[in-house]
Amino acid sequence: MSEYFRPLTLGEAVNILADKHPKLVAGGTDMMVMVKSGYRPQAWMDLTALEVLRGISLARNELVIGAMTLHAEIAQDPLVQEYARALADAAAKVGSPQIRNMGTIGGNIANASPAGDLLPPLYALNARLDLVSKSGRRIVPVNEVFTGPKRTSIRADELIGWIRVPARDGLWSDYARLGTRNALSISKVGVALAARVERAGGGVARLRDCMIALGSVAPTVVYAESAMDLLEGRQLTGELVQQVALAAQNDARPIDDIRSTAAYRRAMVAVLVRRLLERVE
C-alpha cells in the first residue's frame, strides 16, 4: 500500500518531496489511468490542497500562473486572454470540459507528452518555470526542461511552482491545431505563434521577435527556427507567408503513429503556420 501525503503548504510539500520521493498527483487525469492498470508507487503526494499554487496574477510584466491552475481557469482568464491568447486557446482545446475541470497546467508540463496542447504556446511565449525544492528555487526556460517524450529535467526533489509568461503590450499570439475529431481529441499537429506586430503607417505588417513552436511533430515541442528567421522584421506579404510556411514544414520531424502520418503532419505544419500568419491583426 502506498503512503499518501496531502500537504497544505509549500514548505511541507518540498520536505515530503525530499524525504519520501512520492509520485505527484495534480489533476490526476494521466495518473489514474496508470493506477487502474495496477501501478502503485511507494508514496503519493496529492497537490490538490496547495491553494498557493492555484491562480493567475500579473506582476512585473509577467503572468504568474500557479501550477495547480485548471485548464478551464486558464481558458477563461481575462489576463491570459489578453497577454497570452495562444495559451488560453490551447487550454480551451484540451480534452473535454471534464478534463479541463480537472487537469492542471503543471500536470500538463510534468507529463511531457509531445502532444500536450499547452506546451507549444508556452514555448512560443518564452515561458519560464519556477521550480521549487527544499534546497531553494530555480527558474528555467520552458524549452530547456523537456528531454524527450514523457521525460523532463525536473529533479525528483523539485515541483513546478509557477509558470511565468512574459506579458508585453502589443504581443500577438495564437494557437492552431488539428485533432482526431472536434472534441475529446488529441493533437495531430499543434502550432503556436507569438510576435510583436509592427505596422508602420498602416502598411503591411512586420513581425518582430517572432516565435513559432510546433507540437506533436517531434519527440518534444520544437521551434520552427528557419521559419522564424525568415519572418523577422520583414514585410508580411503573401509571398513571404508561403516561404515561411514551407520553411516551418522542414523544421518538423514528425513520425507515423496511430493518430496520423508523418507526411500529413509535415504538410499540416505549413497549412497551420500559414493560417496563423493570415490571422495576424
Partner: peptide, 15 residues
C-alpha cells in the same frame, strides 16, 4: 460545482 470524471479522481483528492 464542476463536472469531473470520477474514474480519474483519487478519493483522497476530494477531502
Amino acid at each position: 460545482g464542476r463536472a469531473v470524471l470520477s474514474c480519474l479522481t483519487m478519493v483522497g483528492q476530494v477531502q
